[in-house]
Write a protein that binds this DNA or RNA. Structure first.
Length: 422
DNA sequence: ATATTGTCCGTCTTACAGTC
DNA sequence: GACTGTAAGACGGACAATAT
């Protein structure tokens, strides 16, 4: 569809296989059906990642209890079937570029088959969506970054759609321009609905935007920009800014499912909004290198028993592009096998008060942890691991030990939570 | 039964264009 | 530049239809 083309033209992103290709589909389905679909895509993606590709036949079954877990209530069977049937029938038409570079259109349903039994739900995705899900670059994987709980907490149809649209463009801080017709199509309006712009604006633009901005759990703030010809509004786009999180970073990370792997080595939890911003601007390799470099710098300071403010270090590491040097250096090293002394990174700014607070808190937790007996430690360790979202658990089980648990941000947060509840 | 969504009406504000 | 008419739009509220 047209939106997608514009997005791609504007930013010169590679065609296809980007998250945008999946996301921007105009539709007339209800919010609940839309939620199901997003959930199914999420499950599909998870399943695909866990099972080696050749063994994965494309049909995925998920227990109804798992769906209930995400939705927060148990769906009624008849309703579920009806919704899946709508998802199967509702058309998606996407403009794509075929291999020879010519434009092509493709039509499909949101899902291609479904099966509902007493305890499970099975579904298959159209081939195109399957391909997109398989081909999704990790850095672009929307479903780890998509904040399911925030999304599902919006109870307005347009609110959720606009939130999601904006969420996809936090990185470039604005959505593609769309005409009013495009917008109507995007949010799934019939010709007869909201024929007057004033009403359209009032109920499908202004109000949802206001609600998104006022929501205490929303992680973005959104502003609509109209393009006018005289007084008449011809089109619009949204401007997006990451919002200061009003709930704990730990809770957010937990809800979002997983931090991006590139941030795995980070010793403090980098807020998702920042992760987004970094991911938009730097490659995963570069991010990893930046964090590694920053860690070295921190170690260096620790060795000299200077105080270390990780939040500030990471910030200046990214803004100062420490990773670029480091990455080049690493490549050189592996090539020439010659060990060089690392250049000192550019001077660190002394700022970032909020992260100092976080640092204090971290130290407290650390003290509390060290005061525990070995038995208690392993007890907490087990419980922390168990509390992790499934996807992370399998990773952490292999990596985490009693000795390094405090260096693993997600686990530390779980421990912190456990301390809080005891 | 209640909440959400869509429509309609009335009134106020604002930007544009024409006239003086 | 000031004045004025006009149309687009904002906004509050009432209410019906629909979904949950």
């Amino acid at each position: 569809m047209t939106l997608n083309n514009k997005a791609l033209n504007n930013t010169n992103l590679p065609l296809l296989r980007t998250s945008q290709a999946v996301v921007h589909i105009s539709h007339g389905i209800t919010l609940r059906q839309y939620k199901y679909w997003i959930l199914l895509l999420h499950f599909y993606r998870e399943a695909y990642k866990q099972v080696p590709s050749s063994d994965f036949d494309g049909t995925y079954r998920v227990s109804i209890s798992k769906i209930s877990e995400y939705l927060g209530y148990e769906p009624v069977k008849s309703e579920l079937k009806a919704d899946f049937e709508v998802l199967r029938k509702e058309p998606i038409v996407i403009n794509i570029l075929s291999k020879d570079g010519h434009k092509a259109q493709r039509g499909m349903g949101f899902i291609s088959e479904w099966e509902v039994s007493s305890k499970t739900v099975g579904f298959r995705l159209p081939i195109f969506l399957e391909d997109v899900m398989k081909g999704l670059d990790d850095a672009k994987a929307i479903f780890h970054l998509l904040h399911w709980e925030i999304f599902s907490s919006f109870n307005g149809k347009y609110e959720a759609i606009i939130y999601k649209l904006c969420k996809d463009y936090v990185g470039i801080q604005r959505t593609p321009y769309m005409t009013i017709t495009d917008f109507r199509q995007y949010v799934g309006l019939q010709e007869t609905e909201y024929t007057e712009f004033a009403e359209l604006n009032r109920w499908t633009i202004s109000k949802p935007v206001k609600l998104i901005n006022e929501s205490i759990i929303s992680d973005i703030s959104v502003r609509v920009e109209f393009q006018r010809k005289g007084r008449k509004v011809e089109g619009l786009y949204f401007k997006i800014e990451p919002k200061q999180q009003t709930i704990s970073v730990g809770a957010l990370t937990h809800m979002a499912g997983m931090p991006h792997p590139a941030f795995a080595e980070a010793r403090i939890t980098i807020p998702l909004s920042e992760q987004y911003a970094y991911l938009e601007n730097y490659s995963a390799d570069l991010i990893q290198a930046t964090i590694e470099r920053a860690n070295l710098f921190a170690d260096d300071k620790l060795a000299k028993s200077e105080s270390v403010n990780l939040g500030a270090i990471y910030k200046s590491a990214f803004s100062g592009k420490w990773g670029v040097q480091y990455l080049e250096q690493k490549q050189l090293q592996t090539k020439s096998q010659v060990k060089q002394k690392e250049p000192t990174p550019t001077k660190r700014k002394v700022s970032a008060k909020p992260s100092e607070l976080a640092q204090d808190k971290k130290l407290k937790i650390l003290e509390q942890w060290q005061a525990l007996s070995d038995d208690l430690k392993s007890e907490y360790f087990k419980r922390a691991i168990n509390n992790l979202p499934k996807a992370i658990k399998s990773l952490e089980v292999n990596k985490a030990t009693l000795a390094n648990i405090m260096d693993r941000p997600l686990l530390r947060i779980e421990i912190e939570k456990l301390f809080g509840t005891v």
